[in-house]
Computed example of a mutant assay.
Amino acid sequence: MKKIFLILPLLFLIFSCGNTKVEKVENAFYYWKSNDYPSSSNKEKDILINQNIKKLYVKFFEVDYTDAMGSFPISKTGFSLNSYCDEKSTSFYEIIPTVYIKNIVFQKSNEKDLDKLADNVNFLINKYAIERLDSLKVSEIQIDCDWTASTKDKYFYFLKKLKPISQKVISATLRLYPYKYPNKMGVPPVDKVTLMCYNLINPLADQSKNSILDLKELESYLNTGKKYPLHLDVALPVYSWMQVYQNNQFTGVLYDVKDIKPHLKEIKPLWYEVQKDTVINYETYLRVGDKIKYEEITADKIIKAISIIKKNIKFDKEITVTLFHLDENQLNNYSDEEISHFYSDFIK
């Protein structure tokens, strides 16, 4: 009898520490096109309808820094709500303005600069909401930043300032390193975070791994055994790219890969050699012998990543799953059924 009483508390502890079962997933997409890209396509509209998408995280602009200009907006979006709403749409989308702020902004700014930045970010978001969203009410802002231990205090100061100015829910993206090491990297002072389960490795740092999504690398960051102190949503990659190396020097990245794939010969895992001189998009000229690192994200790889995420993360009952990003060229690599699984697998 004594052994039974000793075992029961242990069993209770094990089960009480288990993951909360996700009961509801809100399907979402990131929209990350700048204003020099077409704003919409029929394929993208159909995906939003077929996948019952009601929420879009739309990059409104980015913030960069120079000594001459200070902080300034770049890469503004060409997104227009009207271009995604037609007679088949049953309701309006919830649009979450998203702003990517480069880490150099916080390296170079003092508190007075950050007070001004919070005002300017809020002003531009409101301006674009009127112009692009037909004055659709915005209830949330998401800030995207690769902050470091040395910039976290300034970044967190900015987030605290933005909250009362905007009078909106503030969310932030969360990379895997700060997720694993919250004591070192801090917990951002926001209402919730979206865990970015991609871009795990510096693209040029490890030539043997897929820098977008390496499953072993992903699990090594997630197996903390602790629940993150904020509500946690998830973002997954639905894009692939090719890194181009000419004369053994990195020269750029290609996203539209369908034209070049027939002219490649695999020389080792992830690596290919160009077999025919090829012009891509009238801009990039590939020569015979050029090397290509093809980092492909297949549906099977995403499903395996979801299994790892579910195994290691303690979620709330309701979460948002956001795919990066809404781009016809990339989404052509997946069937509607596969995309649907990227959402529904979280509640299985």
Rank of each mutant, 00 (worst) to 15 (best):
I141M: 10
L11R: 12
Q249L: 08
G252K: 03
F342D: 07
L10W: 10
Y30T: 08
K102C: 09
Y65N: 00
K268M: 11
K258D: 14
D191W: 08
S340G: 03
V253C: 09
I74M: 09
K161Q: 13
E140F: 06
I212C: 01
S39K: 05
I308H: 08
K192Y: 05
N247E: 12
Q275A: 03
K116S: 11
S166A: 11
L124K: 11
Y221P: 04
S89R: 07
C145S: 05
N210E: 03
G78C: 10
F156T: 05
L213D: 00
F61T: 01
L215N: 06
Y294H: 12
T173M: 13
G70L: 09
N223H: 11
P237D: 09
V253N: 14
G225V: 07
S75C: 13
N50G: 06
K192W: 04
N52Y: 05
D259E: 14
P164E: 00
C197E: 03
L13A: 15
S91F: 10
Q330L: 08
V190I: 06
F92K: 12
P164T: 05
H341M: 11
Y30A: 07
E111C: 12
D113R: 11
V253T: 15
N281K: 15
V234D: 00
Y245E: 07
E26L: 09
Q51N: 13
L10I: 15
N122F: 02
I104T: 15
W271P: 00
